[in-house]
Design a protein around this nucleic acid. Structure first.
Lengths: 132, 132
DNA sequence: TTGCAATTGTTATGTTATTACATCAATTGC
DNA sequence: GCAATTGATGTAATAACATAACAATTGCAA
């Protein structure tokens, strides 16, 4: 999928996520955009919905937060399943991909005749710096 | 880890989850236990916290719900990473394990010197029956 | 210019989870 | 025995996350 021109609100939300050091909750994004006229959660959630659809933002299910995709300009959908390592101390998130993992999961799924729509892989723990 | 004797509230919550057909939210569990004297969310969350710790219940991060472990009596912690296929139509959840997936994820993690604490793998989609 | 679709604004509400504080019961050490 | 500690529970209030419903506006194509 090609990412269409972003609307005003979508751009604002995306910029906040790009500039952030780590994942942000929807309400944190809202607070950062109050100066730009944002008043309600829906303004954020609606923008996020589109950004997720375009694949330029990921949702971290285990911490109810959002991050900009680590592949600027690139289309993340083409990389297969996205996995994340999330540091519970500093909040740093590392995105990675492993084709063998994809392959194993998808082959299990095929065996079950299960039709996958969206797969989540999140490893929470401590990054090298924080574990020291 | 060996599962200790469950307390009254822990037993009540666990029984509800065991008898359920699929995953339940904390508030659904609360409603089912009103007749047994439950009045507040915390009674459920506290019991769940212990049941998760003992490994007899799993939390599904992507749908904010809880299920009894599919290995009755057995200690789930010994199976490595637990993965789930969640049907978005009927709510059915299938638990599975794949050592090769574990191995690939843990070897990536080692390369990063990341120290994993808890790993989530959830595939949402349609089960065979619902996809038909 | 009229009509449609997408975006945005606003209010209210629904859902999920935790904080703070009080009470009670079992156990331990003196 | 009886303080002291620990773990479980009860209760109220609030915080954090997410969506429903409806109105207004904008961009654009027929």
């Amino acid at each position: 999928m090609t990412t269409p021109q972003l609307t005003k609100n979508q751009s604002l939300v995306f910029d906040v996520l790009e500039k952030a050091e780590g994942p942000l909750s929807a309400y944190t994004i809202l607070d950062k955009l109050r100066d730009h006229g944002f008043r309600a959660p829906l303004q954020v959630y609606r923008a996020l919905e589109k950004l997720l659809e375009y694949g330029v933002v990921h949702r971290l299910e285990s911490i109810n937060s959002f991050v900009a995709c680590a592949h600027p300009g690139d289309d993340c959908h083409s990389h297969g399943i996205v996995a994340f390592a999330i540091c519970e101390s500093c909040g740093q998130v590392t995105e990675f991909h492993d084709h063998e993992v994809d392959h194993r999961l998808m082959s299990w799924v095929r065996g079950q005749k299960f039709k996958p729509e969206k797969t989540t892989i999140e490893i929470r723990g401590l990054c090298e710096a924080c574990a020291a």
